[in-house]
Simulated scan of single mutants.
Amino acid sequence: MVRIDERSREMVPETKDRILEAALAVFGEKGYHNATMAEIAEAAAVGKGTLYWYFPSKEKLFSGMIDHGLGLLERNLMAIITDRTLSFPSLFKRIVGYYLEFAYTHRHLARIFLNSMHSLDGNGEIQDQFLQLHNRFNKLNSELIQRGRQEGFLRPDLELERVETVLAGLLSGFIGRCILIEGDHQLAEETDFMYDCFLNGLGAR
């Protein structure tokens, strides 16, 4: 059973954040359908009454956990993409590097996000939430590609949606490595490889 530090409630006023962190661990380990509110309350070291006071249902807790975790990822990526002082190579590596770093340090959340669209059948509200998140991240990736075009690093004749698909595939594959492969990852080297692969391909010249 995943547990978090069981300090007294008086010493930890951030009860809501503690519940969300516990939910992240339990949902990440067991998945949405198999996780229970009782397990999350135990992992957060709170009573079930306290848990239901903050989140009246498992759906609300899961939704709040997603906003809590992926909202941080989105805000930090937006701060990077809006930095107009970065050239495209630096921007690409900062964006991709942060995706990989976030996945490596938040493996439970990255796993949930990657599996979200095919593991939540039957819950339209949460699926809609994930679809909106996917669309917002796709828009951010599209802005990155547009910067590459504007600065002459990417061919202007390439269809934008196909380029987005290539980038999404690279991100998904390497984020999956961060989740599945234990041990230290050479994130800077992987970021450089993704940049070279995206800009120059894999073929011998």
Rank of each mutant, 00 (worst) to 15 (best):
V12T: 13
E29H: 03
K30Q: 13
L120Y: 09
S87Q: 14
L20T: 00
L70Q: 05
Y54S: 00
E29Y: 04
S116L: 06
Y98H: 15
E42I: 04
M78I: 11
L61S: 01
L70W: 04
H106F: 10
R94V: 02
L114D: 06
E125W: 00
G28T: 06
W53R: 15
E6V: 05
I4P: 00
A38R: 14
N115L: 13
I40C: 02
V12I: 12
Q129V: 13
A103G: 09
N115C: 08
H33Y: 12
L133A: 08
I80F: 07
F92R: 05
Y98D: 09
S57R: 07
D5G: 11
I95P: 00
N135C: 11
I40E: 02
K93V: 02
L114G: 06
D83P: 07
S63I: 10
G97L: 11
A35M: 04
P13I: 10
G124H: 12
G28M: 09
Y99C: 12
K48C: 08
A44G: 00
A79R: 15
K60V: 10
E10L: 14
G69N: 11
E21Y: 09
A44D: 01
Y99I: 11
L91P: 00
K48A: 10
G64R: 02
H134T: 13
I81Y: 02
N34P: 02
R111N: 12
D121G: 13
D67E: 14
A25G: 05
V96P: 01
A43K: 00
E21G: 03
A25S: 11
L100F: 13
I95D: 01
E6L: 09
G122P: 06
I19L: 02
M78E: 15
F62V: 01
V96S: 04
R7W: 10
L61M: 03
E42H: 07
I81H: 01
E59V: 10
R18C: 03
E6S: 13
T15K: 06
T85F: 04
D5L: 14
N135V: 06
S90F: 10
L24Q: 13
G97E: 08
R84M: 10
R18Y: 06
T15R: 09
F92G: 04
T82G: 08
A25E: 12
W53V: 06
L73F: 04
F55D: 03
